Simulated assay, not measured.
Amino acid sequence: MDIRPAHVRDAARIESIYRHYALHSVLTADVDDSPTAREWELRLEQLAASGYPTLVAAADRDVVGYALLMPWLAKPAFAHTAENSIYLDPNAVGAGIGRQLLDRLLDDARACGIREVIALVADGEHEGRASRALHLGAGYRHVGRLQRVGSKRGRITDVELLQRSLQPSD
């Protein structure tokens, strides 16, 4: 498995992976209008310009997953806190790729000055349980739950807040 920085040429494959979850799960906030490949190209360019790491996992040159950091709230006081996002091709789930992506993403986050990383896990008791387990296994801790804030596919869902500190403990 090759974990590498994402490039604009990866946008179509990233769009395809994300679209699957937008259309068939409650794990994303997007419903039927997920970002297009062109919108992903722009997003990748913006993230790269801002210094936030964006990674892909490639098997035999085919992108099978991606992970990225994005700003946590657009306020200067939160400049050293980021939110992570990880999605895998459904056929790649369960092979340890998510953990490889997350570990590398956290290393890259630390290197670019991020001190705290937030993960939002929708429906962590059901559909999102693999994401919840991945993050908890990587040292995230449960810090809260937003109850009944999501509504998708006829379901009302909670969103769990998980947090990982990248600073040494005091």
Rank of each mutant, 00 (worst) to 15 (best):
R9C: 02
A12V: 05
L88Y: 05
V143A: 04
H24S: 06
L161A: 11
A77R: 09
G137N: 12
L88W: 05
G96P: 08
D33K: 13
R129H: 13
L106D: 07
D103T: 12
Y21V: 02
E15H: 15
D10Q: 05
A11R: 08
A11M: 11
R129D: 12
A48L: 02
D158P: 11
R38F: 01
G94E: 00
G137S: 13
E41V: 06
L101N: 08
V159D: 09
A6F: 14
G98Q: 10
Q147T: 09
L120I: 07
I14M: 14
T28Y: 09
M70V: 00
S169L: 14
A109R: 01
A74S: 13
L136S: 00
I17M: 13
A109C: 13
G144A: 14
E160F: 14
E160G: 04
A6M: 14
A37G: 03
G113R: 15
R13Q: 05
V26G: 04
D62N: 11
T81K: 09
I97G: 03
R104H: 09
I17S: 07
R141T: 03
L106F: 11
S151Y: 15
T81I: 05
R13A: 08
G154Y: 12
R99C: 00
N84S: 13
A49R: 11
T157L: 15
Y140M: 06
A59S: 04
R13H: 01
K75Q: 12
S131L: 06
V93G: 02
I3M: 14
D2R: 15
Q46S: 12
A92C: 02
V64A: 06
L106N: 10
I3Q: 09
L166H: 10
R104N: 10
R38P: 00
A111C: 10
A37S: 12
A95E: 13
H135F: 11
G128C: 06
R110F: 11
E15N: 12
G113F: 13
S165Y: 00
R19H: 14
I17A: 11
H24T: 13
S131G: 05
G144N: 03
Q100E: 12
W40V: 00
D89Y: 05
Y87M: 06
P53I: 01
Y66D: 05
E83Y: 02
D89M: 04
D123C: 08
R110K: 14
P90I: 02
A79K: 10
R99I: 01
A57S: 09
R110P: 00
G150I: 07
R19D: 08
A11I: 01
L47E: 07
L102N: 08
L166K: 08
H80K: 13
I14E: 05
R148C: 03
S34M: 02
